[in-house]
Design a binder for these strands. Structure first.
Lengths: 229, 229
DNA sequence: CCTTAGACTGTGGTTGGACCACACACCCCC
DNA sequence: GGGGGTGTGTGGTCCAACCACAGTCTAAGG
């Protein structure tokens, strides 16, 4: 076993045993190196991996925001990994979209009509009504869909959904530019969003699920992604 | 932007542009450091992250297996990340199981009856008939479920399924020890496996989907995981 | 007494160099 | 022609130093 993996194991054990919790701070790199009898280099490599996994965040300087603290950002880890594997052409964009439809339609069917996340979704919907640029619209769109996923109350599905969206963000931005009439598309998307939100609030999960699936598949189909997506 | 992120960006660009492909080899760490005008330490940190993401594999020595080569193991990345976040208690095991049911039941409903992966699943089923230890049984069980997921032909779903299973592998092993009658449970699981495989081969996706959901939920329910999982 | 400009301390970030173990490839010697 | 030692290049590890940053403490000045 390589040295940095030993450090990784130590940190994971600390997390599992509860000695390191969310918001807690790891020992300083130099202290940790001495404590585990390894070099600071190995400690740093382990922390780098943890950082890529969205488990810790390293901050320089002093004060409460400094040092290496435990965070919880599973979306970052999954998103980066998926994006890289898309870059290697190992994960087809078609499969990403298909999985996104699967997760989101499930979330819509399971969303609680009185979840607080739905209030945020409604607020985002209003902001989308009067927003100018396509970039701003897309950013709000991402947050809207994430809010819907959160309403289902499954942290794993929410994280996976966010990471899928992140992984193909650059791709989605490119195909959006090729749309024939953005204003018309945006108006349609807004109307569909309202329909989805209304269905969820009415407790009609089955209908909401179908609307979400049509919404996503319709967008990618219009943008020119091949059949099946 | 930190130095190692610059290296990460460079590697990702090489992957996106196709100059680095599956099976290809990265320049040696020392060469890459000189080429990008950074220290070898920064290059190593970047490679370490890529390794954790399942994108590259580092090997010492000489020959075809040496050096840092591009691989494609998205399961490793997702699995480690999920496992760590489960360790921080940020992702409940209940949500993991729920997501597993979602993905696997979808895969069962979409599996192609003549997919080559089903032949492997059948072979694994035979091996499970006459196997002794519980560990061996569980290992074969993992491979059986992965084969079913592969039969659906969605690489993203397959990867996510494998990573979910990996993330709770230690957990599953613990609860298995608390089962009252392992032999009876194993016999039931085998029978359910046969039923699932038969449904898929008959082209009855809906039935297969329901059988898979019952199969997984039943197991965790028997092992004592709370309701809803 | 209060304010403020400076030094101090501890954090991660980066670098260069050195040495090790490993595994293949080559070459000399038998 | 065959076999063992050597050469070369790879990643793995460690060390010592320096930098930038940010909060804190201190001492000088009002």
């Amino acid at each position: 076993m390589r040295t940095h993996q030993l450090v990784l194991q130590w940190i994971e054990d600390q997390l599992s045993s509860g000695e390191l919790t969310l918001g807690g701070r790891l020992p300083a790199e130099r202290s940790l190196a001495e404590q585990l009898h390894v070099s600071r280099t190995s400690v740093r490599e382990a922390i780098r991996v943890m950082e890529a996994m969205g488990v810790v965040r390293a901050g320089v300087g002093s004060g409460p925001d400094a040092g290496t603290v435990v965070i919880a950002d599973p979306t970052a880890a999954l998103g980066s990994a998926l994006r890289l594997h898309v870059a290697t052409s190992h994960l087809p964009v078609k499969d990403i979209v298909e999985t996104r439809v699967l997760l989101e339609s499930w979330a819509a069917s399971r969303a609680h009509p009185d979840a607080p996340a739905l209030a945020e979704a409604a607020s985002l919907l209003e902001q989308m009504e009067n927003c100018s640029g396509t970039e701003e619209f897309l950013a709000l769109d991402v947050r809207f869909h994430l809010a819907l996923a959160d309403a289902a109350g499954n942290a794993v599905v929410s994280a996976m959904m966010g990471s899928l969206r992140e992984a193909i963000q650059a791709y989605a931005g490119r195909i959006t530019g090729s749309l024939p009439d953005w204003d018309a598309t945006a108006a349609r998307l807004r109307a569909e969003h309202r329909g989805i939100l209304a269905a969820i609030k009415d407790g009609d999960g089955g209908s909401a699920s179908q609307l979400v699936a049509d919404h996503i598949e319709g967008y990618y189909a219009e943008a020119g992604l091949g059949a099946g997506a």
